[in-house]
């Protein structure tokens, strides 16, 4: 095994282990922290794929902003393992079955996708670097890019409207 493969398997184990720990942790604060570990592992995968920009944006947006808000909410509501209401046993079983079915569908869909195996990745050079990414976003994909920014704007306006105290 060379160093890239070792790193790949290490990050994979970290991501899978972290996500399992996130699901099985009793304490919601631990769950958030494990989820942050998962984001870091995924960012590591991005770096292995030479996508530095995506890796760092993943950390800034998810680990640095969204998970901080999660942590805020959980800490201020003081959710603890002790006062967490126990869910019905049947509900748990139903959840496991539904989740398993979803995984089955996803895995079989990916396995049967035509042409996925033939695709080669061009990882060398500047594929994932910011210059390339910026050019692609602002020439080939400019319309979806602008539309998604309008979506963000509407979400922001919505948040302000909800957050206003008196009307």
């Amino acid at each position: 095994m060379n160093i890239t493969e070792i790193l790949f398997w290490f990050l994979t184990a970290l991501a899978l282990g972290g996500s399992l720990m996130m699901v099985f942790s009793k304490n919601p604060v631990y769950s958030v922290l494990w989820l942050i570990v998962v984001f870091f592992a995924i960012s590591g995968h991005y770096i292995l794929l030479n996508a530095q920009f995506l890796a760092i944006v993943n950390i800034i947006v998810y680990a640095g902003a969204i998970m901080v808000l999660f942590l805020f909410v959980i800490m201020l509501m003081n959710l603890n393992a002790d006062n967490e209401p126990q869910k019905n046993k049947w509900l748990k079983i139903a959840g496991v079955i539904a989740g398993g079915c979803l995984m089955l569908v996803l895995v079989s869909a990916i396995l049967r996708t035509e042409g996925l195996k033939e695709q080669t990745l061009s990882l060398s050079g500047s594929t994932g670097l910011i210059k390339q990414l910026g050019k692609t976003l602002f020439t080939d994909y400019v319309l979806p890019f602008e539309i998604s920014s309008v979506l963000f704007l509407s979400a922001m306006v919505g948040a302000v409207v909800i957050g206003k105290k008196e009307d």
Partner: peptide, 25 residues
């Protein structure tokens, strides 16, 4: 010398909250 240097700084700064939040809670 990563070519996203300043974004890396920004990412680490945004993680600085965790030490304080976790310790405080």
């Amino acid at each position: 010398d990563v070519n996203i240097g300043i974004l890396y700084v920004f990412g680490v700064v945004s993680l600085g909250v965790y030490g304080i939040m976790i310790g405080a809670w």
